[in-house]
Write a protein that binds this DNA or RNA. Structure first.
Length: 578
DNA sequence: GCCGTTTTCGGCCCGACTGTTTTCAGTCG
């Protein structure tokens, strides 16, 4: 799989060209190609030049470069470019407020080629006096350098969304706002985000801005204007607030939700139709007449397409589908009828089985699968065969006292490093549902780790593979596995793949989940709940499914208890024809 | 560098804010 490598090279070429001051559209072309490659589950190295050219954003030239990389492991044009431009300059333009033009001046006039040199010159006060650089800019550059040292780049959605919701709540209560909405990548539920965007309408924009920049946790006011302000909170996250007129709210919401690529495409289409879109509305190009923009749907309607849900706005085919009126009806949180990955205090959960069940029922679920850890995870007090049998009896007893709710007897069985499961089939077959997952040996070779998962799926009692790639966002990469083979086996064996809703996991991710749907592989969305508050994470799991274009029928736990039992039995019957 | 029911060449989204500037360039989203 060379996709990741190629995408990184294209991003790098774009950065180098930017520092060099290249054609901005050429730079955009590289970034767009890189982004599209990242969103592709198919292995690039297996595609011919002509096949590559069918990928949006890849033409003859980039197709050749990809083939070159696939065959020789390097790209000459990139090697040449690297010789030409000092690589440290890429870091230099990563300093907030410092762009390619300034970097060029710094390089030409002061021979600054990296962050170290930049800091030295800034501290010495050598920057001010250069064209377009004064004392204030120099100070801002020093500030930006500090920020980089703290290493605040992208943060997981699980951290950004609660912050966004808190600020929305604060503004609603304390500022004269009318309409208010989260926008940006948070509204698209992107798994990591760079900043938080909030949009409001108000008759008193100045008051809203004052209130906003005066919030308790604001450590830095980056900008403050009539319609737009930006602050940095003490934990490093940047929050942007925009105030618009009510007549523009929809257009602004559309615009500030992005993604950038999605918006650029829409605007290009608008231009071709003699229309103009900006954050204030959608206009007739010639007369300048406002045609719409109070509602977000105005934009899509006037372009002649279906409304596109924010989660789909990544320029991954949604615009074509919206024109053809063939967008999916996305699965929603309300569709979820139970949680199939839940822990109790029998292993490392925080509550008793009864408490875990009561909480799920209170939230409107019809069932849960109790899937405590198995003995391989001794650190989590995993269950051995004997305790599993005891737990089965205990669940039967509790189920007897529950109305309109079922606890499925399950286990999160450990797939050991030697491919075996750590619980015998004799015990697994007594359970309603078996979830299998890897908790050790992450660094094994690709073939080996793939084979472990494939072996688990071939076990007739294993229904679901939990957190299939093992990644922890921002902490640990996915283990090196052959997803194609895993998907193939999942399909053959009728084993479901989990979208683990834990915000640090979101595993499968959106791209693989979309591929799973394309291949017809059953998907479940589960929270991996350890304490009752974790049930709240379901919305993150659903967001991954929505970003993957999944519909209700693609997700097993949107069905009722009977459907669920039916799904589990298909595999057992298939494996045991008698 | 990509792309085409206007185009195989000449386009390529659009505006806010800051800081350095007397009218605008640079950066950002």
């Amino acid at each position: 799989m060379i996709n990741r490598g190629v995408a990184e090279i294209f991003y790098n070429i774009a950065d180098l060209l930017e520092v060099k001051g290249g054609n901005p559209f050429r730079i955009r072309a590289y970034r767009r190609a890189a982004q599209n490659i990242e969103g592709m589950p198919a292995d690039l190295s297996k595609l011919s030049e002509d096949e590559l050219m069918t990928v949006p954003g890849i033409g003859r030239d980039l197709a050749r470069k990809i083939r070159e990389f696939a065959e020789k492991g390097k790209i000459k044009a990139w090697e040449d470019l690297k010789k030409e431009v000092p690589e440290g300059l890429i870091e230099v333009i990563s300093v907030p407020g410092l762009g390619p033009k300034t970097a060029k001046i710094l390089y030409n006039d002061l021979r600054i080629t990296d962050l170290k040199g930049l800091e030295k010159a800034a501290v010495a006060g050598e920057l001010k006096g250069l064209p377009h650089i004064g004392a204030k800019t120099e100070k801002n550059i020093l500030k930006g350098l500090e920020l980089i040292k703290k290493g605040k780049e992208r943060m997981p959605l699980g951290r950004a969304l609660p912050i966004a919701e808190e600020i929305v709540d604060l503004l609603k209560r304390n500022a004269p706002v009318k309409e208010i909405s989260i926008a940006g990548s948070v509204r698209r539920w992107k798994e990591t985000v760079k900043d938080v965007d909030i949009l409001v309408t108000s008759d008193y924009p100045e008051q809203v801005m004052d209130m906003f920049v005066g919030m308790k946790h604001v450590s830095d006011i980056i900008a403050k204007g009539h319609t737009k302000s930006s602050v940095r909170l003490s934990d490093g996250i940047q929050v942007d607030l925009r105030v618009v007129e009510e007549a523009s709210f929809g257009a602004a919401l559309q615009y500030f939700t992005g993604s950038r690529e999605h918006n650029i495409k829409l605007r290009e289409i608008a231009v071709r139709k003699g229309l103009k879109i900006n954050e204030y509305g959608i206009f007739d190009e010639k007369s300048g007449k406002l045609l719409g923009g109070a509602k977000e749907s105005d934009i899509y309607e006037l372009l002649g397409m279906s409304f596109i849900e924010p989660e789909l706005r990544e320029d991954r085919g949604e615009i074509d589908a919206a024109f053809k009126r063939s967008l999916p009806r996305l699965v929603s949180l309300e569709n979820i009828r139970g949680d199939l990955h839940v822990h109790s205090n029998w292993s490392d959960g925080g509550h008793s089985i009864k408490e875990v069940a009561d909480e799920a029922k209170r939230r409107g679920y019809e069932y849960i699968a109790l899937t405590d850890h198995s003995k391989g995870l001794s650190i989590a007090n995993g269950l051995d065969e004997e305790r599993i049998l005891r737990q089965i009896r205990e669940i039967d007893r509790i189920n007897g006292g529950l109305k309109d709710f079922k606890i499925l007897k399950g286990i999160e069985v450990d797939i050991r490093s030697d491919n075996t499961l750590d619980i015998s089939d004799d015990v697994l077959k007594k359970l309603d549902i078996v979830v299998a997952s890897i908790h050790s040996g992450f660094r094994q070779a690709r073939e080996k780790i793939t084979y472990r998962i494939v072996s688990a799926m071939r076990n007739p009692y294993v229904n679901i593979i939990a957190h299939p790639t093992g990644r922890l966002i921002g902490e640990r990469d996915a283990y090196d596995i052959n997803m194609e083979e895993i998907f193939r086996t999942a399909k053959q064996t009728r084993t479901a793949i989990e979208i683990n809703a834990f915000p640090a996991r979101l595993d499968l991710n959106d791209i693989y989940s979309r591929e799973a749907k394309r291949l017809g592989i059953p998907v479940v969305i589960s929270t991996d709940t350890h304490v009752s508050g974790h049930y709240d994470y379901m919305r993150y799991g659903v967001s991954v499914a929505r970003r993957a274009w999944l519909e209700k029928r693609d997700v097993i736990n949107t069905g009722g208890y009977r459907d669920l039992k039916k799904f589990m039995n298909i595999k057992r019957k298939k494996s045991n024809p008698l």
